[in-house]
Design a protein around this nucleic acid. Structure first.
Lengths: 143, 143
DNA sequence: GCAGAGGCTTACGTTAACGTAAACGTAAAG
DNA sequence: CTTTACGTTTACGTTAACGTAAGCCTCTGC
């Protein structure tokens, strides 16, 4: 089912940004399965609109999906990704919750800094590994 | 069982680097369970020496364990970590294997660069989230 | 009017990475 | 000599994150 795009405000939006997506649109764009997308919804990470039974994804839904996938690339669980995404919307009423959110942000920041260090060292080691490999390759070739 | 440290070359090594560790030594140091360490061995990531049945870990084994845990922090699977660790020792004989190793290194590098970008953007967003939270907190307090 | 091309729900299967527990061996300490 | 601490193997259990059907609905093109 191709989600129809009647170009709502005619000739005004220049960039090609659709205002809704089908589930397979998103699956194709991000190289995942529709099953995965529905799974994320099951886990409370997405809640697209419905036309009848059919899911209709807004650009905001698409952004959330991108955030989920970025979280995966960083090794976050879906629960962690949801927590991070939930930091965006300001529905946090009382002071305690805001304090805990700040702590949470600090924790994430610390984790990201650790990841940064890890990446730096691994990058350096990859450089060395590449050098050794090229050396080994050169030696193999000159014989 | 405390692995005995008879200080083999007497009064020569100044730094406190033990030359062997028990499984619970390592478990304690890295905040994991002995079960996990044995699991890594099952998966071929470690192969410590044995005194009878008991596992004896060398400093090199300890380093491998550190690399495994760094891999985990970066969201790598144990298989991926093993592949990366295997890049270190030069047992790669023929040219094809070396070529594939180089490709492999390039892939990892690309992945790490993606992670770097991901971390940068997430860091920025954490800054914004913190700012919003502090603003929200200030507003709550001034009423 | 019917064959595809999507989409939906429900449900069982699968893999990775351990957790948990049982049942046993051994060495030092009281 | 028995408790305590640590170690071992074996094996079943668990959670996350989907994969893989099966069975059914609905619109579109021919």
């Amino acid at each position: 089912m191709k989600t129809e795009q009647p170009q709502p405000q005619p000739g005004h939006e220049s960039g090609p940004e659709p205002d809704s997506y089908s589930i397979s649109d998103l699956a194709r764009e991000f190289g995942i399965t529709t099953r995965a997308i529905r799974f994320y919804e099951d886990k409370g990470l997405l809640s697209p609109a419905r036309r009848g039974q059919t899911r209709i994804y807004s650009p905001e839904d698409r952004v959330r999906l991108m955030l989920i996938l970025r979280g995966k690339r960083l090794g976050f669980s879906l629960d962690e990704s949801r927590e991070i995404i939930d930091m965006y919307d300001p529905e946090h009423g009382n002071v305690e919750q805001l304090q805990r959110l700040l702590q949470h942000i600090e924790q994430k920041r610390a984790q990201l800094q650790q990841q940064l260090r890890d990446i730096q060292s691994l990058m350096g080691e990859l450089d060395e590994a590449e050098a050794r490999t090229r050396a080994s390759l050169a030696q193999t070739q000159e014989q």
